[in-house]
């Protein structure tokens, strides 16, 4: 982490420089970018500007753009709100970029703006989230959530020693991403780890206090409980508190999604045992590649699912794994 931060600072400085003096070659770090693409302009609009997931995605996209020798600028909405994101999209449309990478915060409301952009010649790539109209976007890149659920199940079963009971405590039913994660988790547990008893899914409605009492009641009913798969950070926090109050922290393993800085702190302190990290960097870099391919009229993959990685206390210092930890700044 430390040694690469100086190169990142350099990269950021270069990106700023590239913006000021478009076409300068002074920052070329020996990338394989074709000289013809120098004038190509890309734009990235993320979901929430301050979210480490999107910051990581934006950093990687910027790095990749520099490597490929194209100009990329990043913007994002302040909140997860289509009323905030739409004006940004409209102002970007006015600048007519060659390519647009966007994480739409609504599945329908942005469709007219994006269709207009597309008909004006901009290649649209949907990163992380999508819109329901399938005619929008030359490529859609997001995490393979079912695979992520399977990754979580494998890692959790490993820490549980393939025995005992496991439970999923999720936020609420009917959310496509978390439902897919639970599906993958359940399938993997049933087929790959039949010795583990999977209890019925509980939902805490994003309330840590509910998760805390749910986990304690579950512990009472199933003293052999060995693993919990928590839907999000709030749930994981509630589960951890409940386990600590019951004196079972460390004995019951907790897996959670994402690898935001506070979750990494929780992993270090032993509150969480497994983080299943998405690959926002991969999404951002591939988004840039796909946009360039579309602009150069080369072959484009319509759908890309990125993998997820299980981070544990044991492997978190391995550079191959630690690169998946989300960043708060480039």
């Amino acid at each position: 982490m430390l040694e690469s931060s100086s190169t990142r600072t350099l990269a950021r400085g270069c990106a700023v420089l590239a913006l000021v003096v478009a076409g300068t070659t002074g920052c070329d770090s020996g990338g394989s970018g074709p000289a013809a693409a120098k004038s190509t302009t890309l734009k990235l609009i993320t979901g929430v500007k301050s979210d480490p997931f999107y910051i990581t995605m934006a950093c990687a996209a910027q790095e990749q753009a520099k490597k490929r020798g194209v100009k990329l600028t990043v913007d994002g909405s302040a909140q997860w709100d289509v009323a905030v994101q739409r004006p940004i999209v409209d102002s970007v449309a006015a600048t007519r970029p060659d390519g647009l990478l966007i994480s739409p915060v609504d599945t329908a409301a942005l469709t007219p703006s994006l269709a207009q952009l597309q008909s004006a010649g901009t290649k649209v790539v949907l990163v992380d989230t999508t819109v329901s109209d399938s005619s929008i976007g030359v490529s859609r890149i997001s995490s393979d959530n079912e695979a992520g659920g399977r990754t979580a199940a494998k890692a959790l079963a490993g820490l549980m020693g393939d025995k005992g009971s496991a439970i999923v405590i999720s936020v609420k039913p009917g959310v496509s991403t978390t439902d897919a994660r639970i599906k993958g988790f359940t399938e993997e547990m049933k087929t790959g780890h039949p010795a583990i008893t999977l209890l019925p899914v509980l939902y805490d409605n994003d309330l840590p206090a509910t998760a805390a009492s749910q986990i304690q009641a579950t512990l009472a009913a199933h003293p052999d409980l060995g693993g919990v798969f928590a839907g999000n950070t709030n749930t994981a926090q509630g589960v951890a508190t409940g386990l600590q109050a019951a004196g079972r922290q460390g004995k019951v393993k907790v897996a959670a999604f994402d690898a935001e800085p506070d979750e990494v702190t929780a992993l270090k302190s032993g509150t969480l045992d497994i983080l299943v990290a998405q690959d926002p960097a991969g999404i951002g870099a591939q988004g840039v590649d796909q946009a360039i391919a579309a602009i150069e009229k080369k072959e484009v993959s319509a759908q890309i699912g990125t993998t997820m990685v299980a981070i544990t206390k044991a492997n978190m210092d391995d550079p191959a794994v630690s690169k998946y930890i989300y960043k708060e700044a480039c």
């Binding site: 309330l207 840590p208 206090a209 805390a212 926090q237 508190t241 506070d262």
Partner: peptide, 13 residues
């Protein structure tokens, strides 16, 4: 004291 975090999103109801 109990949860060790502010849980900004956890008090809507």
């Amino acid at each position: 004291a109990y949860f060790g975090t502010t849980s900004i999103a956890g008090h809507s109801s």
